Structure formats: C-alpha cells, structure tokens
Amino acid sequence: MEELKKLNGVAKEIFNELENNVKVNTLLKMSNIMAVKRLGYNDHGKTHARIVANNAIKILKILNKRNIVPSYVKECKGSFEDSLVITLVGAYLHDIGNSVHRKEHHLHSAYLAKDIVEEILKKYYSEEKAYQMLTEILHAIYSHSEGIPSITVEAGCIAVADGTDMTKGRSRIPICRKCYDIHSISAASVEKVTILEGKDRPIKIEVILSNEAGIFQIQEVLGEKINWSGLKDYISVYAKVEKESPVFKEITL
C-alpha cells in the first residue's frame, strides 16, 4: 500500500477519517457479508477498498506525470491534490453498496456515500468546492461498473484499479464452490498484478499467471474495466505464465 503510506496534508487526514469512520467500516463489513458469505463472491470489504484506492492513486500519478491532466484540474481549476482526494475517496467507497445488494451496487454505493462524503469534505473545503468535489466522487463511484462510461480521468483510474485487484483469492468473478469450470480455474491462476509506468503508453499493467487460464480473468475482469474507463488508449496489459515463459506478452483487450 505504498501510495496510501505516501499521503500527506489534507489527503492523509481524509484517508484517516475514512479508516476510522464507524459508518464506513460498518458498510464495508456488511458488504463482505452480502458479497462473500451470501453470494459467494470474493472480498469487497476494507482490504479491497484499500487496494483499489492505492492502485487508483498510482495510476492517477503516472497519468499526471505523462501530461494527462486530471479532469477536476482541467475543468474546475482544482489542484492535483483535489483530484487525488476525489480518487482516494471514490475508490475507498466504491463498493459500499454491496451492503444493500450486489445488483446495482454502484448505484447503492453512490447514495450511501453522499452524506458521508459531504460531511468529510465540508471540514476541509468551502461549501461550493465541497459540493463540486462531491459530484465528482459520486460520478466515480457510479461509473466504476462495466457498462457505464467513466467520464473523468479520476473515475477511469478507479475503474481500472478495481479491475487490478484480481490475484488468486481476490477474483472479481465469483468462484463456483461446487464445480471445476473456467471461472474457478482462471480466478486461481492470477499470481501477481503490477502497475508500472510504460513507454509507448503511460500505464503498463503486468500480470503473472500460474497457467494460461488466467487470460480469461484478465479479459473478462480487467479488460472490461479498461474498456469502459475512458483510459484505454493510455493502458497496455502484458501477461506471462510464471513457469513457462520469461517474457511478458501483450494481451489484446
């Protein structure tokens, strides 16, 4: 969680508020009860929230370094720290709606997050700016699901980061506990996901697999997130089978 550890200033204070907020922690706990215990999905709780927040911030920083300006900076005259806060909060809260139901969980997450985010932001920003940033965060939360285009850079970072949390035991595809199918095999095949600054494209995502079945996981989970993120032109994905090839090969999404 190197990016979360690097946070400072207002971003760090807001992260600490999220970490210690009783309502947020309860919603994340209930999200796991609903998603994991009742529906057979993998973690959608606090660990997932931290991983997605960390990876989204990393993606945002690389894009900014490569002169892809965050939307709030470009269109609302905000600072990079403002965009970082939008990305942090949106990523951390994007899955709290699972506590209500997996179906339409992105919508549930948005309305559950509204009061939480508004209360936190008003401590650090003017009322007008707090409302501006609130709408950006709610957009990012709502548009993290496949089928809904991410309109801002910050939202796109969150959508892609959500897809990167797919190592074995953390698959976004539910595993059938009583069968041996492509979903189960693929979900258990992703050993490691690394986000790097690329050469031709700003973001390079490397995935190490234990077997080729993991390609299905990359295409169906990460690929779909990238395709709806608005950031597809800035991202390349490479994979290799750990014990079969020393070379990463680009994956067509």
Rank of each mutant, 00 (worst) to 15 (best):
V89R: 06
I173G: 00
I57C: 01
S79I: 02
I33N: 10
A188C: 04
S210A: 10
V153A: 11
L231I: 04
E242W: 01
G45W: 13
R102S: 03
N64S: 13
K6W: 07
L4A: 07
F80C: 03
K61H: 12
S109D: 11
N16E: 14
F15E: 09
H106A: 09
Y92S: 14
E250D: 05
E224R: 15
V89Y: 03
L222S: 01
I215C: 00
A188H: 04
L107A: 14
K243C: 01
K29F: 15
R201C: 08
S109R: 12
T26Q: 15
E242Q: 07
L121K: 07
Q132R: 11
I151F: 09
E119N: 13
I158W: 10
K123W: 04
N55A: 02
E17P: 01
V89E: 10
M34K: 08
H105E: 07
N20R: 13
P149M: 11
P174G: 09
P174M: 07
P70N: 09
A91V: 10
A49V: 12
E104A: 07
N55S: 03
I175C: 02
E250F: 08
A155L: 08
E13C: 01
V190H: 06
E154T: 06
L134Q: 10
M166G: 01
T167F: 00
M1C: 05
G40R: 12
N25L: 09
A110R: 15
I116H: 10
E104H: 11
M1P: 04
Y72L: 08
A239I: 00
P70T: 06
S186L: 00
V207K: 00
Y41H: 15
V69M: 15
L84P: 02
L28R: 06
S245V: 04
W228R: 07
I57P: 03
K74D: 14
L112F: 14
K5C: 03
I68L: 12
E136S: 09
V207A: 02
E118K: 15
V207H: 00
E224F: 03
I14N: 11
Y125H: 04
I148T: 12
G198P: 08
H101K: 12
E119V: 03
N98F: 15
C157H: 04
I208D: 15
I96N: 03
N211M: 04
S99W: 02
E191S: 10
I68Q: 07
E13N: 13
E17R: 13
L209I: 01
G78K: 14
G90F: 05
L28Q: 11
E13M: 13
I173S: 05
S99P: 10
Y125M: 02
M166F: 00
L196H: 13
R177W: 01
L253T: 04
D95P: 02
E128T: 05
S79M: 02
I96L: 03
I203D: 04
E244G: 00
D115I: 06
V160W: 03
G90Q: 08
K192R: 13
M30H: 12
E206N: 11
V22T: 08
H101Y: 12
K204P: 00
K37H: 06
F248C: 04
A188W: 01
S171Q: 08
S171V: 06
G9D: 06
E13K: 15
S189L: 00
V160M: 03
C157S: 02
K23A: 13
G223P: 07
L28T: 11
Q219H: 09
K46E: 14
V190G: 04
I151Y: 07
V153H: 08
Y131T: 06
L121N: 09
